[in-house]
Simulated scan of single mutants.
Amino acid sequence: MKRINQVMSVKSFIASRKVMLIYILLFSGSCFGQDNTSKATDTLIRNIPSSPSVVFDGRDINLHYFKWKSENNLRNDSIKIFSLSPISRRVNKVNGFVLGVGHYENANIKIQTINGLNVEASPLSLALFSISINVPFEALFVGINDNVISNVAFFDDCKDTYVKINGLNISSGGFTGGAELRGFNISIISGMNKMNGFSVGGILNTKNFSGVSISGLANISDSGNGIQIGSSNVSRRHKGIQIGLFNNSKDLRGMQFGLWNTNGKRKLPFINWQFKK
């Protein structure tokens, strides 16, 4: 009987220990198991003002910095080695080779960048050159009087830059605005915001040009710095040399060689110059 009582007391002790353990676990869960951190954080984010900042260690820290970094992180497919053009709306950079029919504005990415080779057959600019005969015709004589140009594709139509090319561009047509190129350009007709480097083609129209441009019909720029060689050369503000049948610059700092040369000071055949205002 005594042995039985001892066994029962041991079982009772073990049972009481289990009950106490369960009670401790439940109590701990009720006290520490509820994590309100995410809720509090969400509340804080929703209540952040439009231009928040805090002072930490003597410096102002923008509370939207990490949110901005997250929203602007590159996707896994945002950088490619090869792409067709128009480039996908999800790709903002190609380091390698692009082949296609041209580039157009992207609603998702402000500027798409190509580092390498861009080859395209642009039907739009090729049609502009072949169908709109007034464009090449006017371009031939624009060096005599830049007011001859009536098409807004020249000079005054400037789209925001949406594609940048660092390298070599080869095109049967060319750009019609909204492009910047740093490198080598070979195209029939091109309209760009900026061209830095060497260009060979039929017509080159740029807002800003720097380098050497050789065109069969016309080189047209709003601001030029370098050498223009073509049948007709026009640069409203030019620093450098113009060589062609007709050369025209409203504000020249350099030399002109051609059949008829016009600058801000004089009009002369064969050779003209201007080095001061």
Rank of each mutant, 00 (worst) to 15 (best):
D57I: 10
S172Y: 08
A40I: 12
Q112K: 13
G201T: 04
R89E: 12
L168E: 06
I4K: 07
S122R: 02
P49H: 10
S38G: 10
K39I: 06
L204W: 00
V234E: 05
F56N: 11
V119G: 12
V234S: 04
V91P: 00
P86I: 07
F141N: 14
L84N: 10
G173K: 02
L181Q: 06
N108W: 09
R236W: 04
L128S: 11
C158R: 11
F66D: 09
D160W: 04
M1K: 11
N145Y: 12
F141L: 15
G100N: 06
N225Y: 04
S187M: 08
K69Q: 11
F27L: 11
Y23T: 14
D60M: 10
R182C: 04
N151I: 06
N233I: 03
L140K: 07
L84M: 11
I149S: 13
I24E: 12
I144V: 15
Q242Y: 04
D156E: 11
L168A: 06
G116I: 01
K276H: 12
G100T: 00
K250H: 14
I61W: 13
N145E: 11
N263Y: 01
S12D: 08
L217T: 10
D251K: 11
S30P: 00
G216R: 11
S235V: 02
I22G: 08
L204K: 01
G240Q: 05
H103A: 06
Q256M: 10
F82A: 09
V200I: 12
T37E: 08
G191P: 00
K93I: 07
S30A: 01
V7T: 14
A179M: 00
I24D: 09
L126D: 09
E120M: 14
P52S: 10
D60C: 02
N73I: 10
K39T: 12
I45G: 06
Q256A: 04
F209T: 00
S132L: 14
I186C: 02
L25S: 14
G201C: 07
N47W: 05
G254E: 12
N248K: 00
G264T: 09
R90S: 15
F129R: 09
F209E: 00
V10E: 14
M255G: 13
T37P: 02
F209K: 01
V142K: 11
N108S: 09
K67C: 05
D156A: 14
D35T: 09
S223H: 04
I4G: 03
K93R: 15
V135C: 05
G183F: 03
K110E: 15
Y23C: 08
I170C: 02
N193K: 13
N36P: 02
S132A: 15
V98K: 02
F246C: 08
V10D: 10
R59V: 01
V163C: 03
A107D: 14
I109E: 12
D42I: 13
G58L: 04
L74W: 13
I203F: 01
Y23L: 13
C158W: 07
K164A: 01
V148A: 08
K239D: 12
Y104A: 07
S88I: 00
N248A: 02
I48P: 03
F175C: 00
F154D: 09
P123L: 09
L25A: 15
E120Y: 03
F56K: 14
S51T: 13
G33N: 05
G201M: 05
Y162N: 08
N233A: 02
Q112Y: 03
F257V: 15
I114M: 06
R46N: 15
Q112D: 09
I243W: 02
L26E: 09
P269L: 06
I131N: 15
I165A: 03
